[in-house]
């Protein structure tokens, strides 16, 4: 086995690849958070719960309506995104004139309610969700056996992240979104219906979370606490990448997944905290985050 400085390269690469898969979820979730934070100035604490709801809706569609994984991958983000728009219209939009803290508290409360309701209906033990037929199996890579589904997760989330970034950076709707993030009052005075843009943006961020939820369903058991398990790490990712930075959240998401994976090999005891240690260091040295602009 090849080794560098006494470390076996094979197992290290294997952990890195596994980390990249976690990173795919970090990237999708932190991207949605960043988009929402940019325009709404709200730290969406319900993001993890909406990711969990995405997984549950996919499970319900499969088990009650026989709608499979592939249609769910499109359908669930639309359904949950609409639910998100409803939340924004009915609840969050009432808080824009108040301090940001109120939005955070509201979405935190919503997260607890959603989690509680799911636990009440489905229990907390978690439910299996079969990997779709076409993505079963695995490839022998030499240093590890790589399940096909995990390759798909990394590829799909990478494509969705880059697609979202392109929409925001290269299209006219993206330009309107960026402008509204800077100065919503002026953009509205040009004739843009900014409240509607805000609602759609929240819906879009939520749809990304739901998409991640559907992708997670066959990998992790579908359970009510799956959102709260991942969201704390995702918040750390967003802080490290820089609040509101789109590209930053994507790169940081994948990057920190990798860091976590390598740490699992190099110093397994540290793998649970390495992201938070990095967060502390970044906050001390660059409070605006690696990709953020100083306020």
């Amino acid at each position: 086995m090849l080794s560098i400085l006494g470390y076996n390269v094979g197992p290290m690469l294997a952990q890195g690849v596994l980390g990249l898969i976690n990173g795919a979820f970090y990237a999708l979730l932190s991207l949605g958070l960043a988009v929402i934070f940019g325009l709404l100035n709200i730290i969406n604490f319900a993001h993890g719960a909406l990711y969990m709801i995405g997984a549950f809706v996919a499970w319900v569609l499969l088990n009650y309506l026989g709608i499979g994984y592939w249609p769910s991958l499109i359908l669930v983000p639309i359904l949950v995104g609409c639910f998100g728009m409803l939340i924004e219209r009915v609840l969050i939009s009432k808080l824009y004139k108040l301090d940001h803290l109120y939005g955070l508290l509201l979405t935190f409360g919503l997260a607890l309610i959603m989690e509680g309701l799911m636990r009440n209906y489905f229990g907390s033990s978690g439910m299996p969700f079969a990997v779709p037929e076409s993505l079963r199996g695995a490839t022998r890579l030499g240093f590890m056996i790589m399940p096909t589904y995990r390759v798909w997760v990394v590829a799909a989330s990478f494509v969705v992240c880059i697609g979202t970034w392109l929409v925001i950076e290269k299209t006219s709707i993206g330009a309107t979104l960026r402008a509204a993030t800077e100065n919503p009052a002026l953009v509205q005075a040009f004739g843009v219906n900014v409240p509607r843009l805000v609602t759609m943006t929240y819906g879009g961020g939520v749809a990304l979370a739901a998409f991640a939820g559907v992708m997670a369903a066959p990998m992790y058991s579908v359970n009510p606490s799956m959102g709260s398990n991942v969201i704390i790490v995702v918040f750390a990712v967003v802080v490290i990448g820089g609040m509101g930075s789109i590209l930053g959240s994507i790169l940081t998401g994948f990057g920190l997944g990798l860091v976590e994976g390598f740490t699992k090999y190099l110093y397994p005891q540290g793998s649970g905290v390495v992201i938070f240690v990095l967060m502390v260091i970044v906050l001390l040295l660059r409070p605006a985050g690696l990709f953020g602009k100083a306020a």
């Binding site: 006219s172 330009a175 309107t176 960026r178 402008a179 993030t181 800077e182 100065n183 002026l186 953009v187 005075a189 040009f190 004739g191 843009v192």
Partner: peptide, 22 residues
């Protein structure tokens, strides 16, 4: 309105700024 502070958007290039108002 052409506002006093001009209201040019820093995250948009010149063409995007020009094309922004519908």
């Amino acid at each position: 309105l052409c506002p006093e502070e001009r209201g040019i958007f820093s995250s948009l290039n010149v063409t995007e700024n020009l094309m922004l108002p519908p």
